[in-house]
Computed example of a mutant assay.
Amino acid sequence: MSLGEFDVITHYFKLHDCGVTDSGVDIGIGDDCAILDIPDGCQLAVTTDTLVAGVHFFEDVCPYRLGYKSLAVNLSDLAAMGATPKWVSLAITLPNVETHWLSEFSRGFFDLANKQGVQLVGGDTTKGPLSITVSAKGIVSRNKALKRNGAKQGDLICVSGDLGNGALGLAHKLENRSLINSQFFVDALELTEPRNELGMLLVNQASSCIDISDGLLQDLQHILDASKCSAHIKADALPFSNAMQQEIEQDKVTQEQAYQYALSGGDDYELLFTLSPDAYQDLLKQDLIDKITVIGDVLANEDEKIRITQSSKPLSLALSGWDHFKK
């Protein structure tokens, strides 16, 4: 079957219902622009990410997983702002039209969209080297969005979930590393779970928040720069999955490598946030579905921005996060 641009839109992206009855969509796919209704007292949160073949994903990646993750990384940005995800637009550049690939890509994309109650409202399809650009939109109560500039001395530094799994999954794929739980780590890399429910719970609780995409230390530095403060991170407190612990115990991964993956590996898409001690206790009383771990403290503005210790002793590691324009 030979499909043109508008056939692709109709067959794989337009005829979809996320099941949300009050979607706020006045005009969706099919016109020059989407027209969206924003509730009174709310602001619109917008984020955009581009994923490029050979840079953000392997050329032979499973299209279902690519569709899923291309939406997940955007929803993670909304989670970091405490916004409720609502709408998404998708621009996809394809080298050619492969019906099986498109079917699987759209299935992965909409599986996550359904889970989060997000509606596709527009986008574009073009021919060229494979790349995906997603723009996700959410709503948040006016002046309640989580930001990066509110961390204060005495706040606790917290993360959701476990760290380093995605980075080890990438290392396994790049280096063909021998691992006991290789599929677990590949799944962590390719089937990212955005923490939107937690992000919404952190509104009125967290003093600052960011999602971990480029490495914990690099993303934490964004909070510290915006908040004009510094931090102490306790390496012993970094949360590792049972699978990562098993790799360490079986000498597949050294403790130092695990720290490297957790602190600078990226691709975690967990939330990194700061809380006052009282807010932390209040949060623990919530019905949390996400694991929360305190990994350090916010300090007064010092020359040394981030101090890392292990068993109360300074820990020195060669660490750097992801930067597209540096090797």
Rank of each mutant, 00 (worst) to 15 (best):
M1A: 11
M1Q: 09
M1G: 14
I9A: 07
V20K: 09
T21E: 15
T21V: 14
D22V: 08
G24Q: 06
D26W: 09
I35W: 00
V46K: 14
V46R: 15
L51D: 09
V55Q: 15
V61M: 15
P63M: 11
D77C: 09
M81W: 02
K86D: 07
V88K: 00
S89M: 14
L90G: 04
A91Y: 11
A91T: 14
I92H: 15
N96G: 12
E98M: 11
S103Q: 14
S103V: 02
F109C: 02
A113Q: 00
N114P: 02
G122K: 03
D124T: 07
D124C: 07
I132V: 14
S135V: 08
V140L: 05
N143V: 00
K144L: 11
D155A: 01
G164F: 05
A171G: 04
E175I: 02
I180T: 12
Q183I: 09
Q183F: 02
L201C: 06
A206K: 04
S213N: 02
D214S: 10
Q218K: 15
H222C: 08
L224I: 04
S227W: 00
S241A: 09
M244N: 06
Q246S: 12
E247M: 07
Y259N: 14
Q260D: 10
L263A: 01
G266W: 00
A279L: 04
Q281F: 01
Q286C: 13
I295K: 03
L299F: 08
A300E: 13
S316P: 05
F325Q: 12
F325D: 09
